[in-house]
């Protein structure tokens, strides 16, 4: 699958979903759209027609507020019909704003409160190692989310148990809920922190599909450390007036802004 095409579709769906659902977090979804596209279009071992296939790679979105991005990736890769997506956040819909597994094929874990995904992913990875299964567990975190102490408990745990089948990806767009990360609670030197906790780390351009694929599609030797990919991203990536702004963490695209955003992610195939 063409991951660039998929990324464009995810962006377009996300704008439509947050518009119709009058929901937030479009900036966070656009920020991770390329990561999702590379994972679902190329990296993850998966069988959309059998979402519980035991050999599948597990993916957990720990920054659950970007749930629309997961729903879009799942729908576009065949887990459920694309025509479910417009019902995001609608009355009686199954697609709630923060990603939820109930009734949605392919969602491994419901999240929404930050700092939960990495521990659960570490548990899945521990079970995989114990049972000598060769699935991998990918957990996508936000940067603001790394303020949560529970993550650092999980980071200690995964390194201690050498969970080489666990891959953490940080969508490092440098903007959290109320302002820049650097002004809120500084994470730098960020890569050094992971390294000093015993992880292997690679920093990539989180919008460069070749870099993402090369760093994510790894299968580590048993006994080596867990792996962290710090993806440097731009919040709101792909819609010029949403890029690098705090505003679009919460704002839902409506009226002219919605039309303008859609024009920037034109895709003749799904238009």
């Amino acid at each position: 699958m063409d991951t660039r095409q998929l990324a464009l579709k995810i962006r377009r769906h996300a704008i439509l979903m947050t518009n119709r659902g009058r929901s937030s977090h479009i900036g966070s979804i656009l920020s991770m759209a390329d990561i999702m596209a590379v994972l679902y279009g190329q990296v993850l071992r998966k069988r959309p027609d059998n979402p519980n296939w035991p050999e599948r790679d597990r993916f957990i979105l720990s920054k659950g507020h970007a749930g629309a991005g997961v729903y879009a990736a799942l729908a576009e890769t065949g887990y459920f019909p694309v025509d479910w997506l417009p019902r995001h956040c609608a009355q009686g819909s199954k697609l709630c704003g923060h990603v939820s597994h109930i009734g949605i094929p392919g969602v491994e874990l419901s999240t929404g409160s930050l700092g939960h995904g990495l521990s659960v992913g570490a548990g899945m990875a521990y079970a995989g190692k114990l049972d000598k299964k060769d699935y991998r567990v990918f957990v996508l975190l936000g940067d603001g989310e790394c303020d949560e102490g529970s993550n650092w408990e999980a980071i200690l745990f995964a390194a201690h148990h050498r969970l080489a089948n666990l891959i953490a990806i940080v969508d490092y767009n440098k903007i959290q809920s109320l302002g820049p990360v650097a002004e809120t609670l500084e994470l730098e030197p960020f890569a050094d922190k992971w390294l000093s906790f015993g992880w292997r780390v690679r920093e990539v351009d989180g919008h460069d599909h070749d870099q993402l694929a090369a760093s994510l599609d790894i299968r580590s030797e048993i006994g080596s450390s867990p792996f962290c990919v710090i993806a440097h991203t731009i919040k709101g990536k792909g819609v010029s007036f949403m890029e690098n702004t705090v505003l679009w963490h919460y704002r839902s695209p409506q009226a002219e802004e919605f039309e303008a955003a859609l024009r920037e992610v034109e895709d003749p195939i799904i238009a």
Partner: peptide, 26 residues
């Protein structure tokens, strides 16, 4: 030994890890 795990003084992680293990059939 394979069925025992001291996760350290970290109850949030313990509970998250327990969930991950349970979702894998433990």
């Amino acid at each position: 030994p394979d069925q025992f795990l001291n996760v350290g003084v970290a109850e949030q992680n313990m509970t998250g890890v327990a969930t991950g293990l349970a979702l894998e059939g433990k």
